[in-house]
């Protein structure tokens, strides 16, 4: 069955207390606004400062990953979706904060991304640290400013596995959904 976006989005936003829910073009200004809104809201609901920091960190990486990597959609893709379309939902659950990020991704990039996440998920805490330090010390920054460390950092800071799905949408594109859970202390 083909991916039904509305069903996906509604399901997300009905699960737990929504702190932030956004769907649309991913812009630098939008990211700033989202970060400010989440920070203010987390202060307001009495989240432990340690958890708040982790949420903020993961959200910065997640949003900037989206900003750098979101694929331009073709003109005739689907009028429903803006050209640099992305989704971000932050919700408060009983035992954790969940951050979900979504975007369409060219099918050609799917296998690479899946392998990368599977690799990260297979590593222990110490192995994640070693891999992080290795990339930090040996890989150059891309011209966009990305360092190939975003996913690793999200895994490290959250202390949980990165949960993901690729949904089939159209021949050229899958919808990629990534969820990061940050447990309360």
């Amino acid at each position: 069955m083909l991916f039904n976006f509305d069903e996906y989005y509604n399901k997300l936003t009905e699960d737990g207390e929504v702190i932030l829910a956004y769907q649309g073009t991913i812009t630098a200004d939008g990211i700033n606004g989202a970060l400010e809104a989440v920070e203010a809201k987390l202060d307001g609901i009495g989240i432990d400062p340690k958890v708040k920091k982790k949420v903020y960190n993961v959200l910065v990486e997640g949003l900037q990953n989206l900003y750098h990597h979101v694929d331009e959609l073709p003109q005739d893709f689907d009028p429903k979706f803006a050209h640099k379309f992305g989704v971000v939902v932050v919700r408060k659950k009983e035992d954790s904060i969940k951050i979900t990020l979504g975007n369409f991704i060219n099918v050609k990039k799917t296998a690479y991304l899946k392998d990368k996440i599977d690799k990260i998920n297979s590593l222990s805490e110490d192995e994640l640290k070693d891999m992080y330090k290795f990339i930090l010390n040996h890989q150059k920054l891309s011209t966009k400013g990305g360092g190939g460390l975003g996913l690793l950092d999200m895994a490290r800071k959250s202390g949980n596995k990165l949960e993901y799905s690729f949904y089939e949408y159209k021949t050229e594109f899958n919808f990629f959904s990534l969820e990061i859970t940050i447990n309360y202390v």
Binding site: G147, L149, G150
Partner: peptide, 12 residues
């Protein structure tokens, strides 16, 4: 207080 992974390489 916070730094992102893009900054982490520049700080190095």
């Amino acid at each position: 207080e916070y730094f992102n992974t893009s900054s982490s390489k520049c700080i190095l």
